[in-house]
């Protein structure tokens, strides 16, 4: 409030809904944006374009982003599991944009039957589903710390060192760079 912004953009979740109501009550224009899946990108871009006076540019970008989400995915030739935390193991499910990025890059997320964006699973479930790759969000070139843990060595992809290290700037959230992220993932899978 002290900075008196013309517009506040909030991610549509949890306490942000209450915060948006409070900000509106004191006269600060606030918008809540859904940004969980690739199909949210186009509408979010149009909303921001309308609110900032860049409707034409926004529409152009939104059309590209809509096509990204609407494109039928290629036939998957490999499988992966996104591991976002190792103890307890937290994986990415169908509800996340990362599941879509994998599909668009030609990989099958072995946890796409999990409806939630992310979920805690047993390590033995990862072993049983036997992904060819373990994808982790990391800006480092070194394998994740859990690669050295004895219990994680039960996962074949971990034993084989099949890690996909995905930079946070491209993969950390859905956005205009998601198209670029798909290209990067495709290139990593083709190594």
């Amino acid at each position: 409030m002290a900075r008196r912004p013309d517009l506040v953009v909030l991610y549509n979740a949890g306490r942000n809904v209450t915060a948006a109501k409070q900000l509106e009550r004191v006269g600060i224009h606030t918008v809540l944006i859904d940004l969980n899946r690739l199909e949210d990108l186009g509408p979010a871009t149009r909303t921001l374009g309308r609110l900032t006076g860049f409707e034409v540019v926004a529409e152009s970008l939104a059309t590209v982003l809509d096509s990204l989400a609407g494109r039928p995915p290629p036939v998957s030739t490999t499988s992966l599991a996104f591991v976002v935390w190792d103890n307890p193991p937290i994986i990415i499910g169908h509800g996340s944009y990362l599941d879509q990025l994998a599909a668009q890059a030609g990989a099958r997320n072995v946890f796409s039957d999990v409806a939630a964006p992310s979920a805690q699973v047993s390590l033995e479930t990862i072993v049983a589903r036997d992904p060819q790759w373990i994808a982790v969000l990391s800006d480092s070139a070194a394998p994740p710390g859990f690669a050295k843990r004895r219990e994680w060595r039960a996962v074949r992809a971990v034993r084989d060192g099949h890690f996909l290290l995905l930079p946070g700037s491209s993969f950390g959230r859905p956005g205009p760079r998601s198209g670029e992220a798909i290209q990067q993932l495709r290139a990593l899978l083709a190594r």
Binding site: P88, D113, A116, A119, Q120, V121, S122, E124, T125
Partner: peptide
């Protein structure tokens, strides 16, 4: 490990 498999509580 089992009641909500493949998820875990």
């Amino acid at each position: 490990r089992t009641v909500v498999a493949p998820r875990e509580l």
